[in-house]
Structure formats: C-alpha cells, structure tokens
Write a protein that binds this DNA or RNA. Structure first.
Length: 468
RNA sequence: GGCGACAUAGCCAAGUGGUAAGGCCGGGGUCUGCAAAACCCCUAUUCCCCAGUUCGACUCUGGGUGUCGCCUCCA
C-alpha cells in the first residue's frame, strides 16, 4: 500500500491468506494471463516451506459482458462458455505445474453475498441506485486513488471516457447492473440484474479470507481501476481503513516485441499453443527467471535459452539420482558438497524472502547443480566409492529449491516400456560393439537412435540415454 | 493531456553508497575411440547522457534522451 517493499508480518501468526484475481473465462488463457499464477504458485510453495499455513483463493469471474457476448455469438449459454474456458484454464495451468487453489469461487455462486455487500454500501451512503443500476460514489471514499497513486482531480483532468451524465461523478462505477434482454440475471432489491465487475473480489475475499488478509495479487493492469475499486468497496463496507489486503503483489506484463501482450491487441500466444512447442516446465522456468515485477519479453529464442538452462539443471539432477542408486562406501567425501549446497540453499531462501526474487534464487540452484556435477565427475571418472550420506543431504537441499521453483518433479516418463526395452537392447548391442572396438557399428547405432530423438551419453560406468 | 515504471556485456537478467550474481550464445582447454554430457578458463575498467551531493555513485538528487505501461475491456 505504501507502493514500496515492506517487511511481511502476517495478520494471523503462522498463517498466510492470499487472494489472486483469476480469469474471466471467455476465451483461451494466454501466456501473459498465466504469469501471475506461476508467480503465486511459487510464492505459495515458498510460504509452505517456511512453515506457514497458506490459504489461497482465486476467483473465476463467470458473469461478465465478454462471456455474454461470446455466448450470443456461439449460440450457447453463458454457462457453457464459462465452463469450457475454465476447463481450458485448468488444462494449461496443470501443465505449468500450478497447484490448485484452496477455493475457486465463482461470481454465479456468490450472488447473495454480493447483494448483501451492495445493499450495505447503499445503507452506509457510499452507493446510490439509478434505474435498477447501483453505483459506487467515489467522492464519498477519501482514500480513493491511494493504491494507484493518483487523485480524483488527476483523473478528472485526464478523463477521456464518455460519461454517463446521470452519474454523480464520472469515476463512479457500477456495483450492480440492471438486466438487458438475453442476459443472465438474478432478482435483487433493485430489480433483475447482475453484479458489476469489481464487487466480486471484495465479496469473495471477505467470505473466504475475512476482513483483513495478507496478500492480494494480479497483473499490473488491475491496479486501476479494479484493485482501487475493490479497496474502496471493502473498506467502506467494513468501515475500517485498515481492512482488506495488507500487501499487494502486481506482476509486470509479458510483452511481444516490447509491446504488452493483450487480447485486444491480438498479439498473444495462448498457453496451450506454447505447450505444443515447449514443455510446461520450460515455460514455467522461463517466467521465473525474471523478477515478477519486471516486464518479460516473450520470444522463441528466449524460450530456447530457458530450455537450455533448465536442461543443465536436469542433467545435474539425473547425475545425482544415478549416483544415489548405488551403495555408499569409503570414498570421495561429499562433505564439502553438502556444505556448499546448504549455503546455496540458505541464500536461495534469503532471495525468496526479499520480494520473491526468483531470478536471484535460481542462480543458487545453478550453483548447487554445478557442485553436484563436479562431484559426479569425480566419482564416475575416478571410479571411487560414494559418500552416499552427504550426497543425499546435498541432493535434498537441491530438491527443496527445485520444488519451490516447481521444476524437475518426477513424472512418469513418456514412452512405452516396450519401446524402452528396444532402446536398451540397442544400447547394449552398441556397448558390446564398443568393447570389440567396432566403432563403425557403435556409431551407426548411435546415429540411428539420434534420428529417433534419443541421445546417448557414455561414461566410465556405462552408457545412458535420454530423449532429447 | 494526467500519472507511473524502466534503461546493466552479443542476447536474457539480478544487484549494492565502496568498486558488477546467474543463465544462454561464442572462443580455448580437460575428459572421450569419436561424440555427447559435465567441468575448467576467457568474454562489461563498466552499468543511457549531463550536472550535483559524497572520501567514494551503476546505486542518492536534479535535468535530458529513449522505451514501455495505466488513465477504456485487459493478468
């Protein structure tokens, strides 16, 4: 609220309440929409690791002009549209390894509470009715503009919106809209109608998180007017200037050629489109390599760069897992590895604690990966016995960091075991050929597998393969 | 027009009043039958420009330039 970084003090000791503005499901989510959800999923994982009891709420605005328009165009109900794109939302977000919220409230399921709040605002004199519409009177709320750093006078000076002359102030916004034919509507004290855009978040956060909660998030484009209006509604309704969200986290935009990706500019890639070309893990990693507040320019080239970096982390992960399959013994000590990895782990947590600096945090993941690789080479090349206990400790720290970033989680490998068996057979045949120094045959097999997207890696302890 | 953010190597990107993390790409090397992977070394005397504050600024202040965003639906 101060528009600066602040130290975090939870409303309730040991607990964190988070409300993030979700999507309006009227078409496919694009990668820019997904950024806040990746960010918040990571923040949420971090708080959990720090021992907080996290409650995460994310709404679906399923009653909205754009949904209604889409339903008319496609000759289906508004509910069909909402359900369809909520499914699309989950499909994309699941691929990005985003854990589900504790509750996904929908506007259509929160109508009574919304009406209660609207009525309360009228009672308190903050809102007025006009022919079945209800407007919020911004002049009545003297903190208006605090979040976005602008005053009503500034806004008046710069106003370039057509004004509904009936409103008391041009900036007044709708809490309740009277129904037009063919629109979803609910009975209310002001006649048939539906909620305005901002009221649902005020109502839902109150319903699921209480009067005051810790974090509120969303894209920067929601700061004004959406979040400004939420504050006005909630604080006026509760009669408490300290209620509602304590800390605000707003994501920078994802851009294309330095231009904001947006549905109205039609310069977007949907999440599901991108997932056809890159694994969700890569997309997630790409997003987290930049601080959440900074703009992030999207391009194939940058996604490829991210993929290359992630591949190195993956190799380190695989290397360590491979070693850990073996028995321990008297050998190359991993005490130093355990120590440096633990230090990296601590710095990782410090970085996350300082405004969720995932970009800095990831650098420590690379540091840990490098150290594990050095140890791996020592063991594999020298054939020394393994200090399993210390390696396992280092790997546990590494895994902990990777889990917060949300990458390298073991998933069932794609590809049938049948196919795997064939590959194994070829690899073994090649191994025999190499023993016999039949390099021609060995290389032939390697090339053949490469054509199938299988990459071989030889080491002193054998050959392993992976899908490129 | 009003309000605001940002400007760091070939690309991406952290960062601090005391002398520039990390990633990608590129070059050289170690290992390897050759590869691949991994590791090692090299790659910004410098952080948009100009003034100022300071023992000292990329980091603070003022001015300029540029880019982007919000003010209308938008994550």
């Amino acid at each position: 609220m101060s528009r600066q970084k602040e130290e975090f003090k939870p409303v309730n000791e040991g607990k964190v309440g988070i409300y993030v503005c979700g999507v309006t499901p009227y078409n496919e989510p694009h990668i820019g929409n997904a950024r806040p959800f990746v960010t918040w999923d990571t923040i949420r994982r971090f708080f959990k690791k720090c021992g907080y009891d996290v409650r995460y709420i994310q709404n679906f605005t399923d009653v909205d002009d754009k949904i209604i328009r889409a339903s008319h165009e496609q000759h289906v109900t508004w509910k069909d549209i909402a359900d369809k794109y909520i499914d699309a939302y989950f499909k994309g977000m699941d691929a990005l390894n985003i854990r589900h919220a504790d509750v996904y409230p929908r506007v259509s399921e929160t109508i009574p509470e919304i009406q209660e709040m609207v009525a309360g605002l009228i009672d308190k004199g903050y809102a007025y009715e006009l022919d079945g519409d209800v407007y919020y009177s911004v002049e009545k709320f003297n903190g208006y503009g605090k979040l976005s750093g602008r005053s009503l006078d500034d806004m008046m000076a710069g106003a370039r919106v057509e004004v509904d002359e009936r409103k008391k102030n041009p900036m007044d916004f709708a809490l309740w809209k009277s129904a037009k034919p063919g629109e979803p509507s609910w009975d209310s004290p002001w006649g048939k109608g539906r909620p305005g855009w901002h009221i649902e978040c005020s109502t839902m956060s109150l319903k699921y998180l209480g009067k005051t909660f810790d974090f509120h998030g969303g894209g920067s484009d929601l700061i004004f007017p959406h979040h400004e209006n939420e504050i006005a509604q909630s604080q006026a309704y509760l009669g408490d200037a300290h209620s509602f969200a304590r800390y605000w986290v707003h994501n920078g935009f994802i851009t294309i050629h330095e231009q904001k990706m947006s549905k109205s500019l039609h310069n977007f890639f949907t999440v599901n489109e991108i997932l056809e070309k890159y694994p969700g893990e890569v997309v997630r990693f790409f997003i987290l390599q930049t601080h959440y507040r900074s703009p992030l320019d999207f391009s194939d080239e940058r996604l490829r760069d991210a993929a290359a970096g992630l591949a190195r982390l993956k190799t380190a992960n695989d290397n360590a897992n491979e070693l850990l399959k073996n028995e321990g013994g008297e050998g190359e000590s991993a005490a130093e590895l355990k120590k440096t990895t633990h230090e990296a782990h601590e710095k990782f947590y410090e970085a996350m604690a300082d405004d969720f600096n995932t970009a800095l945090a990831i650098s420590y993941l690379f540091e840990a990966a490098k150290n594990m690789n050095v140890y791996y080479n020592d063991i594999v090349n020298k054939g020394a016995a393994l200090d399993r206990e210390n390696l396992a400790a280092a790997k546990a720290d590494f895994d902990d960091m990777a889990e917060i970033i949300g990458i390298l989680e073991d998933k069932a490998e794609s590809g049938s075991s049948d196919e795997d068996a064939k590959i194994d057979a070829l690899v073994n045949e090649r191994l025999a050929a190499r023993k016999a120094k039949n390099w021609a045959r060995a290389d032939e097999i390697r090339d053949m597998l490469k054509a199938q997207g299988i990459v071989l890696e030889d080491s002193a302890s054998g050959t392993r393969w992976k899908r490129a």
